[in-house]
Amino acid sequence: MANRPAPALVLREGDLERLSRIVRSTAERAGLVLRSRIVLLAAEGLANESIAERVGVARNTVLAWRRRYAQSGLRGLEDQARSGRPRRIDHRKIVSTTLKPPPKKYGVTHWSSRLLGKHLGIGNKTVAVAWREYGVQPWRAETFRFSTDPELVGKVNDVVGLYLNPPENAIVLCVDEKSQIQALDRTAPLLPIREGSCEKRTHDYVRHGTSTLFAALEIATGRVTGACKPRHRNTEFLAFLKQVARAYPDQDLHLVMDNYAAHKHPNVKAWLEAHPRVKCHFTPTHASWMNLVEVWFGIIERQAIHRGTFGSVKDLNAKIRAFITGWNDRCHPFVWTKTADQILKKAKRSTTSETPH
């Protein structure tokens, strides 16, 4: 009696779409694509010999993958775990050596995979695998700074309290200055953005001087009061405070600012005493990130200054003022979300943490 062709393979619910997606994919492993094709052809009712001829494998291979799918579904098409050759290199030793400074004879500050591989007599790819396994990245370095302010707790609670629960019938403003803004002009005109090509500019430039931007950010609306001045002494800062006071007449003002010396100058203190409706709240030392105007300074830097070209300081100041005018037409509130307890908990954890061994 002649051999009858095997019956069509019955696919599980939803597998037709998944298998078809795998077969069409250009990112899947070639082996998985091949097995998926075999299963799809078997589901169409093709004979095993025809499937083997079409995909270029032996008939027994077709039988094996039909059986695997029938038993385990899509999971049966995945590669099974293989024991392989036992690892002969201890990754912990590689990482342990990585965490120690390189010998002085190398004259380097940190290990590279090639240098450590040569030092240990192994391949640099083996070093890279060990680093990836343990999450070690010797080429990276970050900065940190602990606040040593003796009034840390009080200042954090004060500033965060203003953000999360501002006083009624009062305005909360974040005040600071962005100093040393350079009026840079390129040595050749910019090449504008075009289809298929980004904006281009020369790497060299002409410096025409610097300016300082004083800004007061109203957190409830995002509105900014700004002024450009040639320097950032207490004289300029006091003049800016008077400008802010005029911009908000007959309203109590709560100003959040950092501990820059000009902010605490006797002239500034005397003016504040004469104007009790203006109250200052200082961020902890080394915690200027708590001043929300720093976020706005990042916005104007990215959107108006970094890629700008300025023929003079006057031109720079005019474009800064134009940005502030446009910003105030589209501004939005600045919302603070982190509580004082969260900030203090993280600060405490950072100062008490020990270096892992």
Rank of each mutant, 00 (worst) to 15 (best):
M1T: 01
A2W: 04
L9D: 09
L11A: 07
L16D: 09
E17N: 01
L19M: 05
S20N: 06
R21G: 08
I22H: 11
R29M: 05
A30F: 09
G31N: 12
G31P: 10
R37G: 08
V39M: 05
V39Y: 01
A43G: 11
E44G: 01
L46P: 05
A47C: 09
N48Y: 10
G56D: 10
V57D: 05
R59I: 00
V62H: 02
A70L: 07
Q71I: 04
Q71W: 09
R75T: 13
G76F: 07
L77F: 14
L77K: 09
Q80L: 13
A81C: 08
P86D: 00
R88W: 05
T98C: 14
P103E: 01
P103T: 02
K104D: 11
T109M: 05
H110Y: 05
R114N: 10
G117D: 06
G117S: 06
K118P: 03
L120K: 12
G121D: 12
I122R: 00
N124D: 09
T126F: 03
V129K: 03
V129R: 13
V129D: 05
W131L: 00
R132L: 01
W139T: 03
R140C: 08
A141F: 08
E142C: 06
F144I: 09
F144A: 11
F146Q: 10
L152R: 06
N157L: 04
D158P: 10
N165K: 15
P166E: 15
N169H: 15
I171P: 05
V172R: 14
V172W: 14
C174Y: 07
V175I: 02
V175E: 03
Q180V: 07
Q180N: 08
Q182M: 08
L184A: 04
L184D: 06
D185G: 08
D185R: 11
R186E: 05
A188C: 04
P189K: 02
P189A: 03
P189H: 07
L190T: 08
L191Q: 10
G196E: 05
C198T: 07
E199K: 13
R201Q: 03
H208W: 14
S211M: 14
S211T: 14
L213G: 12
L217N: 07
L217P: 06
E218W: 12
A220S: 05
V224P: 00
T225H: 03
G226V: 00
A227N: 01
N234Y: 09
E236K: 02
F237L: 04
A239P: 02
K242T: 06
V244Q: 04
R246K: 11
R246T: 11
D250H: 12
L253R: 11
L253T: 12
H254D: 09
A262D: 02
V268T: 09
K269P: 08
E273N: 15
A274K: 15
R277W: 11
R277M: 08
V278A: 11
K279I: 13
C280P: 14
T283V: 10
A287I: 04
N291T: 03
V293T: 09
E294P: 02
E294D: 09
V295D: 06
W296K: 10
I300E: 03
R302T: 09
Q303F: 14
V313H: 15
K314W: 12
I320L: 07
R321H: 13
A322F: 06
I324S: 00
G326C: 08
R330I: 04
R330A: 07
F334L: 09
W336R: 07
T337K: 13
T337I: 11
D341Y: 13
Q342C: 08
A347H: 14
E354P: 03
